[in-house]
Design a protein around this nucleic acid. Structure first.
Lengths: 193, 193
DNA sequence: GTCTATATGTAGATAGAC
DNA sequence: GTCTATCTACATATAGAC
């Protein structure tokens, strides 16, 4: 890191992330990114060797966090308490700060993710996490509840349209509802109404 | 409908829907669609005047169903029973039969939808439906629960990985969990744990 | 580290023969 | 209704000057 390049590189990432999220990865061109930054396309290629690499660069960071979380989760006993703890860490560590923008990008570009190495890894991580939230249960219902609990955290940034609600408030609401879903896993549910 | 063209048109729609869902709308080219059908690109242009129009053509059908549902929902009294009834119709009428593939396409191509007239209409419809599931409540929590209840129906096709589970079974599981979420709207929820 | 210029490919779309 | 041939535009990516 002896280059004074860190700034431009970061600015490219920031602009790319924003455009990729807004209008989709495929539809966003390098010309667009370069123009918004006030540089030429060629400049982008000095910092990243391809368009894919730009996307990968900010996903890799999230994968590292997620892998640590998975590793930790695997070492915990499968219990209601562990489920809550996993989800809490998921919400705090993957959605904390401005990094949540990466999760939104991931969420909104699911099909594009299939073509990235990093994207595939991320998808696999999400599935693994869902599995860890289900065990020791195995029912299909539990699988859906686990997936929905993760999505609960994601959903708050579009389901709550009021722009005055802060990211922290959203996270708390998402976690609360996720807990409700998780707490029904591994418990006999009485047939209702 | 005097042309014997209905068949080719339908085949184009079917193949396009499949490819759009698998690899994304932007990434799928007309060349790909034509090749898989064993025709040339020019043939596609006889049946549709643009790529957009192909996507619009199968979304329009879902919009009609959704608009009828919204219209009906607006005429009902806002109650727990109405919420369940709306969701049940959502699951049955929009996801019934092979038409659920269109909903999956919609789901997986959210960013692309922003550029379609039909896509925007569909998104607006989903939001309107979420609003109808919330009233007369207004809390942010209720908004998230409503959005999640709709997504519960969607989620069953990827959260349940066992391929032997039928579409009908998935729908029932999705609806069951959606009901649980909806039943907490408009009810005092005690602070738990 | 960023530029100009350009290579190369492929996309969506159209004209007009059959 | 489907074809061949082609247009136009823009994409990713590279070479080499500054």
């Amino acid at each position: 890191m002896s280059e004074s390049t860190g700034d431009t590189r970061s600015r490219i990432q920031a602009v790319a992330l924003e455009l990729f999220s807004e209008e989709g990865y495929e539809k966003t061109s390098l010309r667009e990114i370069a123009e918004r930054l006030g540089v030429t396309k060629a400049a982008l290629y000095y910092h990243f060797k391809s368009k894919d690499e730009i996307a990968n660069s900010f996903i890799l960071d999230r994968i590292e966090i997620m892998d640590r979380l998975i590793e930790w989760a695997e070492a915990q006993p499968p219990s209601a308490g562990t489920r809550r703890a996993i989800l809490r860490r998921y919400a705090d560590e993957l959605f904390g700060g401005k990094r949540q923008l990466v999760m939104r990008f991931f969420e909104q570009n699911q099909t594009a993710m299939k073509n990235f190495s990093a994207g595939k890894e991320m998808r696999a991580g999400m599935m693994r996490l869902a599995d860890l939230l289900v065990r020791p249960e195995t029912s299909h219902e539990a699988q859906v509840r686990a997936a929905l609990s993760l999505f609960s955290v994601h959903s708050t940034w579009f389901a709550i349209r009021d722009p005055d609600v802060t990211d922290e408030e959203r996270r708390e609401i998402g976690v609360k509802i996720a807990y409700e879903l998780l707490d029904k896993i591994g418990v006999e549910v009485p047939a209702s109404a």
